[in-house]
Simulated scan of single mutants.
Amino acid sequence: MSPLAPMSQVESDRSPDGPGYGVRAIERVCAVLNLLQESIDGVTLKEVADAAELPKSSAFRYLWTLEQHRYVERDAGSGLFRIGLGFLGMQSHHLEVLRERVRPSLERLRDALDETTSLGLLDGHHVIYLDIIESRRSVRLAAERGSHDPLHSTALGKAIAAHLPVERVRELLEQAGMPRRTVDTIADVDDYLAELAKVRRLGYAVDNRENEPDGRCVAVPILGTRLPAAISVSAPEARFSMRDVEMAGRTLIEVATRITLTPLAQDDPPTA
């Protein structure tokens, strides 16, 4: 026994049901994560507190700490907690289901608009491209599947951030910074938050030469899912006018709504 730890402390760190080596705090974390993993729609703070046998205030501190490390996510609308992207292996099935659900829509959009379409997801303080359907044109705007782009300079990032709590957006921007990718990149937090208010008002986000000097992109969030995701259309600005962007934004809203409402087995997204 360590001379630095009183007997009461040592006993409190042991599981009453185990061989005497279980750390109670770790057991409580495991109880919380097991509860979250088994839930489809997320769990309440009370459910977490009951599972971990903790007061609500203590349970919230556990969840807050796990959220900072991306092992837990909190839905801003419902207040429910769910497994975060820190457990990418646990999320792999959900990510694949989302990709399968969205891909037919991306393909039809690409065929209808003849421009690159993408599915993006919040991954830490960046956006990761889960799927990309490239334009068949020789000159096109496209990232690579699995690559990352900033939250502040992309339409995908704006579409996702517009539906996160403001405090969370500030944290993400502080972690990643707001480097200027082009002369048009928004590099001020307050300006960015004002841009997000515009996104919520319009229903779609625009990257107007902010991530690439000769590119434009429009994106909308996929709401009603358990993942912070968005879909987009991108093209060189020379053939993607702001009028085209507006039309594409309206089409993306319709497609995203259909993706959310239609069961996977019957998914048949509309032609743009």
Rank of each mutant, 00 (worst) to 15 (best):
M1F: 10
L4S: 15
A5H: 12
M7N: 14
V10Q: 12
S12W: 15
R14Y: 09
G20V: 07
G20P: 15
G22Y: 05
G22L: 03
A25N: 14
R28A: 06
C30M: 05
D41R: 13
V43C: 03
A49F: 08
L54D: 06
K56I: 12
S57L: 06
S58F: 15
R61F: 13
T65L: 04
R70K: 07
Y71W: 15
V72W: 11
D75L: 05
L80C: 14
L80Q: 03
G86R: 02
L88N: 02
H93R: 10
V97I: 03
E100P: 06
V102S: 05
E107G: 08
R108N: 02
S118L: 06
L121D: 15
G124Y: 04
H125C: 10
H125S: 13
V127A: 00
I128A: 04
I132L: 10
L141V: 01
L141A: 02
A142M: 07
A143M: 06
E144N: 08
G146H: 04
H148K: 01
A155N: 00
A155G: 07
L156M: 07
G157M: 02
A159C: 05
A161V: 11
A162K: 02
A162D: 01
R168C: 01
R168A: 04
R168N: 02
E171R: 06
P179T: 14
V183T: 04
V183Y: 12
T185E: 07
V189K: 07
D191A: 09
L193K: 02
E195Q: 15
L196Q: 02
K198T: 13
L202Q: 09
A205F: 00
D207S: 11
D207A: 04
N208S: 15
N211A: 11
P213Q: 08
G215K: 01
R216H: 03
V218P: 01
V218K: 01
A219M: 14
L223K: 09
G224I: 08
A229C: 15
I231H: 01
S234P: 09
P236N: 09
F240Q: 10
F240L: 09
S241R: 15
S241V: 09
R250G: 06
I253N: 00
A256W: 06
R258Y: 14
Q266T: 11
D267E: 11
P269G: 09
P270M: 05
T271L: 12
A272Q: 08
A272Y: 00
